[in-house]
Amino acid sequence: MSTLAPSRGSASGSTRGTGSLKTKISKPGERVVLIVLRLAAALTVVITIGIIVALLLPSIQFFAEVPIFEFLFGTRWAPRFADASFGVIPLVTATAWTTGIALLVAIPLGLGAAIFLSEYAHPNLRKTLKPILELLAGIPTVVFGLFALQFVQAVVFKQWLNLDTGAFSVLAAGVVMGVMIVPTIASISEDAMSAVPQSMRQGSAALGANRMQTTVKVVFPAALSGILAAIVLGISRGVGETMIVAMAAGGQAQIVTNPLDQGQTMTGFIANAALGDSRVGSIEYNTLFAVGLLLFVITLIINYISIRVVRKFREAY
């Protein structure tokens, strides 16, 4: 029945089937574009390696002077004192407090916002709210730092709540950092939840599930890998956040046992100590890099754990 016969270079003047297959694919312009793109890709790799090397070299010098065990498990951080000691635990506790408090604020608020936007809000409302939310992520952290120091700590904690706290606290820094992270967690989680096919929600609804059940038991698990990625990004931002903690958490390196105490975080120490007056190769100079390396390793471990967790629990669709 078919009238489509295979063409065999008929006499009809068809150009089909003529010409070699081995024609040059790329024009000169394309080749230039390709080279530029390759360079761009290579540059990012080179820069990353450069950063790692720059962190590693001074750190190695540091660990030649300070035993790694003393650094990781020492409980007194006093790198600039005459009887210097380099136990990083005080810095780590302060970072743990601020990050932990930030996540306690950011995860419920961020996921709540994401669930509302993805599952409950009218599409028009979502179209309006989401860009506003993402705009919040662009507020400079120094503004948040000022807010934490001058309003949350000085006014809310001390005046309104009459809490027993000084000029700085890890609580104020953590709470404000949490507010800062909310848009990140909300926006990425919302993307993940919106990407869950509508047919899943319909299937659930057709079984007589209500919207909350569908959200919690179908959409949420299906979006889990994206949601965890959002939370991990939040943790990474919390661990790495500098300005808020440098301004509001305080500058005294001590093991923090009470969130109303002040404490110096790892990033806070680097920000305060790296003022350019440490001589290259000196122990103070190398200390900065050792702390930086530790931050880098902690972030790496968090990322690794989260990848494993996501693999274990995700419900791929």
Binding site: G203, A206, A222
Partner: peptide, 26 residues
């Protein structure tokens, strides 16, 4: 009144949990 859709839309869960989902939710 249940519904079966044009394109199969199992939940991204185990076979067991796909069946148990409805009874659990209800």
């Amino acid at each position: 009144i249940g519904m079966v859709f044009q394109k199969p839309n199992p939940f991204p869960k185990s076979i067991y949990d796909n069946i148990a989902y409805g009874p659990r939710v209800l």
